[in-house]
């Protein structure tokens, strides 16, 4: 997955979970969850939505590493073996 593709999936997933949020407004290095007022359940649902769209299952233990759009983009683009 390219960085651009990854970024699009993340923005889609966030909008699907928190329809009131505008992730495009947030600085890519900022704490996205705090900036958009997303709680830990929202975060979990975003990760599940990313999984639904890409087949990439993000283990819960990796969530703390995924605090900004930049973190998440790099993480998804770096995953080479989608499940299934």
């Amino acid at each position: 997955m390219t960085n651009e593709e990854a970024a699009r999936v993340i923005v889609d997933a966030i909008e699907a979970v928190a329809a009131d949020a505008d992730p495009r407004e947030v600085d890519p290095t900022e704490d996205i969850w705090y900036a958009l007022d997303l709680d830990s359940m929202d975060q979990l649902n975003v990760m599940i939505a990313i999984g639904d769209r890409t087949g990439i299952e993000v283990p819960e233990a990796d969530y703390p590493k995924l605090q900004s759009l930049a973190d998440m983009t790099a993480y998804l683009a770096g995953v080479v073996t989608p499940k299934g």
Binding site: A18, A19, D20, D37, L38, D39, M41, D42
Partner: peptide
């Protein structure tokens, strides 16, 4: 559907 979810979150908050 997305607009309704957004409306509800804006008014009620995520909790």
């Amino acid at each position: 559907r997305s607009e309704l979810l957004a409306h509800a979150r804006r008014s009620l908050g995520s909790a």
